[in-house]
Simulated assay, not measured.
Amino acid sequence: MEFCASCGNMLQIQPGIGQRVRFFCPTCPYVCTAINKIVRRQHLVKKELEPIFSGSDAMKFAPKTATTCPRCHNGEAYFKQMQIRSADEPMTTFYKCCNEICNHEWRED
């Protein structure tokens, strides 16, 4: 990213004729050519997610509800509600099937 020397806004790229590329400021008349600019790509590392339902001891105290598992069609599941979006949006409910063979996890927004 390049920033304007006069007003500090982020510069935009304007393709030129041939191989000449230049940066320009959208709010003021500042322009600079992109000669010998270093292009650096940053590789992002995916964050490891913590499981919603962790450990077998935690399941002893988790509340259950009557709902149908989409995988095995069992009629009961553990659930946990969390506010993962803005406060004016409804809570997200996470489920884990009570069938020990299935243990499928899903969510409803």
Rank of each mutant, 00 (worst) to 15 (best):
T92C: 03
M10R: 15
G8K: 01
S86P: 00
C32I: 12
C32A: 09
C69R: 03
I17N: 12
M82T: 12
G8A: 02
M91F: 05
T67E: 08
E48L: 11
R40C: 07
I84G: 01
H73G: 03
P15I: 08
F94Y: 15
S86H: 01
E105A: 06
G8M: 03
I101L: 13
S6K: 15
I52K: 05
Q42T: 05
E2K: 06
H43S: 09
K47P: 06
F61E: 10
E50T: 14
K46I: 12
R22N: 08
A62R: 10
R107N: 10
S56Y: 02
M91Q: 13
P63W: 05
L44N: 06
Q19P: 06
P70G: 09
K46T: 11
Y95G: 02
D88S: 09
Q83L: 03
R41V: 05
A66D: 10
W106N: 00
V31E: 15
E2F: 00
I13P: 09
K96V: 07
E50R: 14
R71P: 01
S54Q: 14
Q81N: 08
T93C: 09
C69I: 03
R85W: 02
N9W: 08
M91P: 02
A62Y: 09
M59C: 06
E100C: 06
R20A: 13
F24Q: 07
